[in-house]
């Protein structure tokens, strides 16, 4: 058997556009509210009353021919053996060449202190309510729901000055768990696995369905594929 190539198939027919994936991703990966490793495109077409609406979930495509990896001057953005496009913040200089190179706008740049909300710096009602520093002091974490398991392969939160993006939840894969968005999807619209393994569910689904990718003309060879109509 050849090497592993992780891939995600999103069944738009099953997807109901609820955004549970987007939120669960933030929970799992300690992603700032203004970023969206897991994101979506929304399309409304037609005139009343003949209106169609589509919701297309997006995330890093973990392209086999990844422009972000090519553009990175320090190899901070790199490919893993299993096909994941991974980022190493310790090498990142924050040049944003990857953001420029990515045709899908899925790479985010920490231009502020991550997870810090100015709104929450002081207590709302003195002595009666808390504040973000208050919660940090009490719980010893940046936000109450901070997930320390993310630290296995990335800084728990990414420092100011570096980029960040979806990692296919590599830290969960290492434990035999699916990416957080896959688990969170109540419609079971996301199928994840090794497309090089003919017996994997993704391979079977891909064999049966006409799969499409975003911006195929860019030649990026995405590993996030779409089947069905929303």
């Amino acid at each position: 058997m050849g090497k592993v190539q992780y891939c995600m198939v999103i069944d738009l027919e099953a997807c109901v556009g609820c955004s549970a994936c987007d939120i669960a991703c933030k929970v799992e990966n300690n992603v700032p509210a203004s970023f969206a490793w897991s994101n979506h495109i929304i399309e409304t077409v037609g005139k009343f009353p003949d209106v169609k609406y589509r919701y297309i979930p997006t995330l890093c495509n973990h392209c086999s021919n990844a422009p972000c990896v090519a553009a990175c001057p320090t190899t901070a953005m790199h490919k893993l053996d299993n096909g994941i496009t991974m980022h190493d913040p310790s090498k990142c200089i924050g040049c944003a060449a990857c953001r420029i190179a990515c045709p899908y706008d899925v790479i985010y740049f920490n231009d502020k202190e991550p997870l810090v909300r100015e709104e929450f710096l002081e207590p709302l009602i003195p002595e009666c309510t808390s504040s973000q520093p208050g919660i940090q002091k009490k719980l010893g974490v940046p936000v109450g729901y901070y997930n320390p398991e993310r630290e296995a392969t990335l800084p728990g939160i990414r420092p100011r000055g570096v980029v960040e993006k979806c990692t296919f939840c590599d830290h969960r894969l290492a434990k035999g768990l699916p990416p957080a968005c896959v688990e969170a999807c109540p419609a079971n619209a996301r199928i994840f696995g090794d497309r090089n393994d003919p017996n994997s569910e993704v391979s079977k689904v891909l064999a049966k369905n006409h799969a499409r990718v975003l911006k195929p003309e860019k030649g990026t060879e995405p590993n996030v594929l779409y089947i069905g109509e929303f």
Binding site: E113, L115, V116, E151, T153, L154, P155, R158
Partner: peptide
């Protein structure tokens, strides 16, 4: 107080 969360991958022990 957030310093340590910027740290790279926490040790296996942690």
């Amino acid at each position: 107080p957030m310093l340590k969360y910027f740290a790279m991958a926490s040790p296996e022990e942690a």
